[in-house]
Design a protein around this nucleic acid. Structure first.
Lengths: 235, 235
DNA sequence: AATGACCAAGTGATCAGATCACTTTCGTTC
DNA sequence: GAACGAAAGTGATCTGATCACTTGGTCATT
């Protein structure tokens, strides 16, 4: 339809954005590295400052670059990603939120299974670190931190699959509407059970047992969904 | 870290972008509707034109709005989405591309199973339409069009699940690097087999057989992967 | 009356240069 | 050696103008 063949009239902005990405790639800059000043880019590409800024804003929106006031332009955290969470995602309806959790419950179990087959070393250590941190936060009673670390565990799990695209997908669905997801997860609530389940999943992945890892992850997420559905039906 | 608590110093641009989204929501504008001119927005929010444009570029990058030269600002196709394909995705390495297909092979089968349970009417019709179109394109020999329609089928299948988030995820992984995906799929190649497999999946969904729909979708995607892997190992 | 060419208004695209606000660095001072 | 502060570098925003594209209507032609 819209992407069908034909000469696409590339605007100056399209070229600019592409050129800047190419420049970053050429210099082999990585996330966090400083790029170039707005003025310098304007000179380099022979365009005006506002034009450069528009192009940068576009790149910024997808996490390709970051503009830090008074400091400079930096390579962003999401450069080179295929799938992104919408940074402009609206506050979701409760239906939409449940859909989001359902999506996670569908996607993450097979990802866990793959993780148990691949067992990426670095990610396994991250999972372990997340679990340790979670235990400490339960002890210290910092529930806000805890909720975030629990989300981290799911992301680390996905990274253990060794498939960057899957990790991006899981990252996306665990980042969008985090605030609301954490709220609804808070309803679910049993922190110790959560930790135990996470530990069991970690153990299954570590043991290289795909079926078990998948089943545990499914039960973990379905359990949350079940509680939520109950609460919503009879408040 | 960066998202941890504390007063986030919202820049003028953040406010602007949020305000414009709110304005669109207030007016209940839908995708494709005309919004407001840049100058008018500048007046309304008491900011300069370049500032409005930066904010619009940010919204544009995530598909929330569209700027059409000489015509106006319109509400974009991706407004309200949670997960997005990166419009700036770089040309992938062959490894990355295989990862992408693996991700699809992992995600889409359970989505097909859900689709067979839910069977969203509109999406079923879209699937049927896609199949008809594919058959015609095979006959007419328009292989470029055909490849696109085949991708459409996968998207329609995801929509039949009735879960918008899942549909967005599948849409994302079928849109990023389409060009390259289509190329690699072209290697795979047997167009008639593809159509037959799609038809079988459609039938399984229509019949409300989740296990079958899942198995067929898995075999379909795994089949593609197997062929690709073979070709890459012994060129 | 239907059709086509053409013109004008509205709107986005881009430019130029200037000023303000924030960060960082480095020399100065205690 | 540490705390302070000034200056340089850089992003943020403004002003106002000109160019380029789209669109709707006018008007002459048929």
């Amino acid at each position: 339809m819209s992407t069908s063949g034909g000469v696409v009239r590339r605007s100056l902005l399209d070229d600019l954005a592409a050129s800047m990405l190419a420049l970053i790639a050429d210099r082999k800059l990585a996330s966090g590295d400083q790029f170039e000043s707005v003025r310098s880019l304007a000179d380099r590409f022979k365009v005006a400052v506002p034009t450069v800024r528009e192009a940068l804003r576009r790149l910024e929106a997808t996490g390709a670059v970051e503009l830090r006031h008074g400091s400079g332009v930096y390579v962003g955290p999401h450069i080179g990603r295929l799938v992104l969470p919408n940074p402009l995602a609206p506050t979701p309806s409760s239906d939409r939120l449940i859909e989001l959790l359902q999506a996670r419950a569908l996607i993450e179990p097979p990802v866990a299974a793959l993780a148990a087959r691949v067992r990426t070393e670095a990610a396994l250590q991250r999972m372990d670190r997340d679990l340790t941190a979670a235990a400490e936060l339960i002890a210290s009673g910092d529930h806000a931190q805890l909720a975030e670390v629990n989300m981290d565990f799911h992301r680390s799990l996905a990274q253990a699959s060794g498939n960057a695209t899957l990790a991006e997908v899981v990252e996306s669905v665990t980042v969008v509407n985090v605030r609301e997801q954490l709220e609804i997860l808070h309803i679910h609530g049993d922190r110790q059970t959560d930790l135990d389940e996470h530990r069991a999943i970690h153990a299954a992945v570590l043991a290289g047992d795909p079926e078990l890892a998948e089943r545990l992850t499914r039960e973990h997420l379905d359990g949350v969904l079940a509680v939520i559905n109950d609460r919503l039906q009879q408040p």
